[in-house]
């Protein structure tokens, strides 16, 4: 079960942009997915406030929107941090200790899969292979790749991001 933990900070400008998207797309067949994708482009994620706006604007029940948002991995219900951490738990990384990196980061940041720290600095996701198996275990922070990781390197790496 996914729950919302951080308050919504959407602006009137973002809302206006979303309304424009809805007005453009809502009468097309199969409009829901593109509207949701564009909404996520505007807000970075799809909290209840955003899904409610889509529901009100399209007449689609909010449960249907929520159902779609929890079915496809591409939709986030939690905001992403300034720095997006992505830990590889693919086969190669996993056997080389990716799970220990994953556990240590969860403990250090105090958040779980898909969640964001309350200062919105870091968000944490797992992924399956980023094509750097030779450097396993690996993680990415935004576009930076870190390989041959050990748990004791993590504090030093996190400290680089402010």
């Amino acid at each position: 079960m996914k729950s919302q933990t951080l308050p919504f900070t959407g602006t009137p400008e973002q809302a206006a942009e979303l309304q424009k998207v809805i007005a453009e797309l809502k009468d097309q067949p199969g409009a829901l997915m593109p509207i949701m994708q564009k909404a996520q482009g505007i807000y970075g994620y799809l909290p209840i406030e955003v899904q409610k706006m889509i529901a009100d604007g399209t007449g689609i029940p909010i449960e249907k929107i929520y159902g779609v948002s929890t079915f496809y991995a591409q939709f986030n219900l939690q905001p992403k941090g300034k720095y997006r951490i992505s830990v590889c738990l693919g086969t190669a990384c996993y056997v080389k200790g990716g799970d220990k990196i994953w556990d240590a980061l969860r403990k250090k940041l105090g958040i779980g899969e898909g969640e964001c720290t309350s200062d919105r600095k870091f968000s944490l996701d797992s992924c399956r292979c980023i094509g750097a198996c030779g450097m396993a275990p690996v993680m990415m922070i935004n576009d930076d790749v870190y390989g041959r990781l050990t748990v004791d390197q993590l504090d030093g790496i996190l400290a680089k991001y402010n």
């Binding site: 209840i48 689609i60 029940p61 449960e63 249907k64 929107i65 929520y66 929890t70």
Partner: peptide, 26 residues
Amino acid sequence: CTNIQQIGVIGANNRGFNTQIGCAFE
């Protein structure tokens, strides 16, 4: 709820083994 009554307050949430019938945002 969705097609006959056209209300749609319940639906399938999540995916695969985790699929549950429920309401928006649990």
